[in-house]
Amino acid sequence: MTPEEIIQRLVAELGDDVVESETSYDVATVTVAPARYADAARFAKTTRGLDFTFFDFLTGVDEGEQGYGVVTHLYSPIHKHHIQLRTVVPNDAATLPTMTGVFRGANWHERETWEMFGIVFDGHPNLVKLLLPDEFEGHPLRKEFLLMSREVKPWPGAKEPGE
């Protein structure tokens, strides 16, 4: 199935809850409303013809003013096609329905995204820290997170990271 056809199938199912869609490098990226995020994954997994049964990863992206993006990459071993399911949650209400009911493997990915970005996954069976020490405070992959070493000593390189 081509990326365009995949997008059409999702739009037909979710309607206006598909906020945005694009294709790059032969991979469809479909942005859905936060409330329908797990539904979109369930539809992509269980619909004949799509068959996205392989859960690759789920992670977060700090998109500044726009909120926190959450990206899930799914793959179909049958049809050998990919999809990136994306959603954006607002900064002040970073909450998403959990995907563990669809893919059990999403458990650790959601725990990591929670501790790194502070995105709460409603209904997650065990939302506790995965990688960080228990006493760690803050969400280190948020751009607002201050690195103490940087506060004490400015970046010694010629260019800022990302410049």
Partner: peptide
């Protein structure tokens, strides 16, 4: 000293 990770949130100095 922490090496290339001197400004990381997780690496000891």
């Amino acid at each position: 000293c922490g090496g290339p990770y001197w400004d990381s949130y997780s690496v000891a100095k």
